[in-house]
């Protein structure tokens, strides 16, 4: 008998919360991106766990698409970071105040 799904769900919740904490407290845009990846992975782990608990392949299909979207998101996001860095020479989120009133 394998590990019950609740343990996986708690682990995924802890991982998600660590990612959210990092997104809240870090200032480096790249590290904030990595924290978003942490949260995406926590959601993926939850989907796979539910897929096993319900015996349904749909959860794994969702993870498949989340991987695709995450790859696209990282490519565009890092492109934006590079474009911003070219203007501001900084990767801190506090320096992005051009829209401040």
């Amino acid at each position: 008998m394998s590990i019950p799904g609740e343990w996986y769900l708690i682990l995924a919740a802890a991982l998600f919360i660590l990612g959210a904490l990092g997104l809240l407290v870090r200032r480096n845009v790249l590290v904030m991106f990595m924290c978003i990846e942490l949260m995406l992975n926590a959601a993926n782990l939850t989907f796979v766990t539910y897929s096993r608990m319900l015996g349904d392949i749909g959860g794994q299909v969702v993870v498949f698409f989340v991987l695709v979207v995450a790859a696209a998101e990282v490519v565009v996001g890092l492109g934006i970071v590079v474009a911003i860095f070219r203007r501001r020479a900084s990767s801190s989120a506090d320096d992005l105040n051009a829209l401040k009133g």
Partner: peptide, 30 residues
């Protein structure tokens, strides 16, 4: 943990796409 839950294809994709492509892209940009 994906392998542990019989999602072997997703485990392979996780390594290839995340560890192989996304993190390398991160390191490249850093």
């Amino acid at each position: 943990l994906f392998i542990e839950q019989q999602a072997s294809f997703l485990a392979a994709v996780q390594i290839i796409v995340y560890a192989g492509a996304i993190v390398v892209l991160f390191l490249f940009v850093i």
